[in-house]
Design a protein around this nucleic acid. Structure first.
Lengths: 206, 206, 206, 206
DNA sequence: GATGAATGAGTTTTCATTCAT
DNA sequence: GATGAATGAAAACTCATTCAT
């Protein structure tokens, strides 16, 4: 992805410009999807908000669907980056800390453009990206499961089910916390919520 | 509202006809939303599937949005009915049974047309029904909280937060169970999942 | 038109009811035409304002066009009645008084539902009532012309042209007076205007 | 606004194309309004007659009403141009010639697409252009009044009323001459009519 | 006769996409 | 490459009219 910056300045310039246009389009699409919903998100409007012509939009994206897919992709990448980083750190921590970290990262991940979520969720089945999301979900579940299996201090339970229950619970608390109570949720309340959720999950696993 | 069938036969006939038309339209809308998404749900198609003319559609619903709002309403009513009934029974049960009942009803509620959920979710902010959903959420939270406060055998925790954590956890497990794994979820697995979730929540509360 | 009132009371009752319905429909149509224009004047709306069902509307008028034609007819009748009455009186008056009377009746006639005028004007060519209006115009012109010919005190001019010029001038002053300045026209101003117009026309004819 | 044709050729090209499209649409609308009335003037038909797509119509006009408003505006502009030019010349002429000129220009103005007039008249109250028309009427009245005030040879009369009466009379004769008798009006008759009307008005003013 | 639910052709309007400049 | 005018299929919506009750 990173090309030699000192050579090919002309080409780089235009590559940068292209990149900037693509980014602007994705960003504009995301914004309009949030503000007005999929229905009202017309390509002309998107192009206008991105500050380019419709023609240019179609230079970079073959269809509206492709644009939306790009938004989904970008959003997924961001979430995956955050979550994967956390999971990688977590693997070595003792349960208490690990769970606390998972809860925290779940909230962090849900705070990434939370209003975009439901809009994209409806489109995912239609853009063929269900596979990606499911794969990611499986990846997380399997990492958590592996972690649980590696911890001898835990009581005997089906690690598959336990992972499922834990991940669900954590994700849900994060989801509800961010989405439903977004405005009224003070930092202190978030911390308490992290404590409680951690306690619930840890209590369950031990 | 319910008139004796032998009086007002004329009016009742036409009322029934109206009612049937309205129901058919809502049903058709729900079906198309599930099958093809909001985008493809054109009023002409909806009318056709409902077996009435577009004109009739607009006789009863001033816009496509109004129709979708009606679908959301109907869906919400069904869920509320199921959940309220369960909560009413639950209030007198001991914790273990109460939680088990809540988990079960959460799954039951999520099994009501689960594919409709994400489609409606996108529309709710735009149809002005957020208030309704939020009110329902608050209602549940407050009932659960009242239950927790009434139970002396529980450890000391902020009942607000505890209720929030429990309801989130339960709801999420149900949501994930029904939505993500719908096809592969055997009855036995569901039962095990109910067990696990119950254990998690009860362990947390005691 | 007047049937024996004491016999056939039943039938008369229903005839009266019919008559009332027809009148209500014509009146409702006129009102809506004024308020919202031809385009927005739907038969359903008209029926509603008239307090009857659409079905009844079509019992009495075979089409929307027929309804509008009835409105035009009623309006024309009213104007004709007023104008004819005035012309009949006028024929024997000396010029000064005759002209003054014509000016007065022109204003009176234009005050009959003045906002309805432009709306009906557009429809007249399409309802086949142009003939009626033209015939009425010719009738007036010919009466005025006959009057002018009968008055020996007038200077020699082509009575056809003179009649045309006089009627036009009178009608126009009335039209502008009523339509353009409707709100701001005090009774005193109207009287002055009648004076001026009379003077103009009389001066022209002598 | 007028750019040198050799600079900005690209932009000018597209500006010209736009301008041509807009003009074609206004022209097509006017034609259809005349031929078939407001009712039958559908946007698809207008676009077709203009030789462009409906999409283009809506690129330039947000609604059918806006199109009609543009037609009204164009028509008003044309009339105003003709009338203003005549009034400017008139101001220095002696009465006889001035009145003759006004009568002539009134006829000329009414000959601009006379069938369009009644159709537009109905729409004006609904397009918010009443203000424009009224302002123009006031402008004319005030110019004529100023003229009358500047002429010492006239008898003493309220110049406001005199202007009103004269303008009305002139306008009416022109209106009736053009509209009602359009087909049968020979040039000679028109000339005689101008003579007569001039005589009437001049006689009145002296 | 009266009613008003139902009809569906026809209208207005939108928007993804193309293409001449 | 960029532009934005143009396209036209398809969507939302209206309304004169019919007809079962």
């Amino acid at each position: 992805m990173a090309r030699k910056p000192l050579t090919n300045p002309r080409k780089n310039a235009s590559q940068n410009r292209s990149r900037a246009t693509v980014d602007a389009l994705i960003e504009a699409t995301a914004r309009i999807l949030v503000r007005e919903g999929f229905e009202k998100a017309s390509t002309n409007r998107i192009a206008e908000l991105a500050g380019v012509s419709v023609g240019s939009l179609y230079q970079y994206f073959p269809s509206k669907e492709a644009l939306v897919a790009a938004v989904i992709d970008r959003h997924n990448q961001e979430i995956m980056r955050v979550v994967r980083a956390a999971l990688a750190e977590t693997i070595e921590l003792p349960i208490e800390k690990a769970v606390r970290r998972l809860v925290a990262v779940a909230i962090e991940a849900h705070r990434i453009d939370p209003k975009l979520h439901p809009v994209l969720a409806e489109q995912i089945p239609r853009t063929g990206q269900l596979k990606d999301v499911e794969a990611f979900n499986r990846e997380i579940l399997s990492l958590v499961r592996a972690y649980l299996e590696s911890r001898s201090e835990l009581r005997k339970i089906d690690p598959e089910l336990a992972a499922f229950a834990c991940v669900s619970a954590i994700e849900a608390v994060a989801h509800n916390a961010v989405l439903n109570q977004a405005d009224t949720l003070s930092d202190k309340m978030v911390r308490t919520l992290v404590d409680e959720t951690t306690r619930m999950v840890v209590g369950y696993l031990r």
